[in-house]
């Protein structure tokens, strides 16, 4: 192993904000002045928090604006801030393949009264959003209004709960026996007892009360 020299370290990079992201902020503040709630710069990345109900309009406008042209939806994800009100962030990463502009949009939804909040779907703007929104629905329980087929994508259709929520345990879940693993025909009712999970507590195995209707799955394609 070679001895590490004590050469001077390169200076930590300064992270300059992207000019086109700033142009995006200006554009949104002009066109949707009431919808832009907050603009944050961190490590050169611009995050624009917007009003949830305007997301579909804003995305369509960003895609069609000739100077920006956000034609590529890189990613949608969500963050669960358990203690915060509103509880969830829905995060959109947009990219323009023509102008190389990048920006992050963010919604804040969900409060105590709506444990399963709803946001407008952007599948009409970018078809790519369909899988990402299904994934968020599956793992966070956030519904997307206007999604053509909002069903579970990662987990079996009879699963109860949304694992990426912060109040969902990472482990210690005993699956009911037998767990069918989603191999139930979509058009058949679930056998009684399926989909119930029990949590291990120091006192014993305690069944958690089902947080929702024990998963009656959607038939594929009938989500509209």
């Amino acid at each position: 192993m070679a001895e590490q020299s004590n050469a001077a370290q390169p200076q930590p990079t300064a992270w300059p904000p992207q000019p086109l992201a700033l142009a995006t902020v200006t554009f949104l503040q002009e066109r949707f002045a009431d919808a832009v709630l907050e603009v944050v710069e961190h490590r050169g990345e611009t995050t624009i928090t917007i009003a949830p109900e305007r997301i579909a309009d804003i995305c369509a406008a960003l895609r069609d604006e000739p100077s920006l042209r956000y034609n590529f939806l890189a990613d949608i994800t969500a963050v669960d801030w358990l203690e915060r009100e509103p509880r969830y962030d829905v995060v959109y990463h947009l990219l323009s393949l023509e102008t190389r502009a990048v920006v992050r949009l963010k919604l804040r939804i969900g409060d105590e009264d709506t444990p399963d909040p709803e946001a407008p779907s952007v599948t009409a703007v970018w078809p790519a959003a369909a899988f990402y929104e299904r994934e968020i629905y599956d793992l966070f329980g956030i519904r997307f209004a206007g999604h053509p087929n909002l069903t579970r994508i990662m987990l079996p259709p009879d699963w109860v709960g949304h694992p990426l929520r912060k109040d969902y345990p990472q482990t210690g879940i005993v699956l009911p026996s037998p767990h069918w693993g989603g191999q139930i025909p979509f058009d058949q009712p679930l056998p009684t007892g399926t989909g119930k999970q029990t949590l291990r507590t120091p006192e014993g195995r305690e069944e958690s009360p089902p947080t929702r209707e024990p998963g009656v799955p959607h038939a594929p394609g009938s989500g509209q």
């Binding site: 961190h42 490590r43 990345e45 995050t47 890189a74 990613d75 995060v91 990463h93 990219l95």
Partner: peptide
């Protein structure tokens, strides 16, 4: 520090 990044 608190914050968020996306690296492609």
């Amino acid at each position: 520090p608190a914050g968020e990044v996306y690296v492609r």
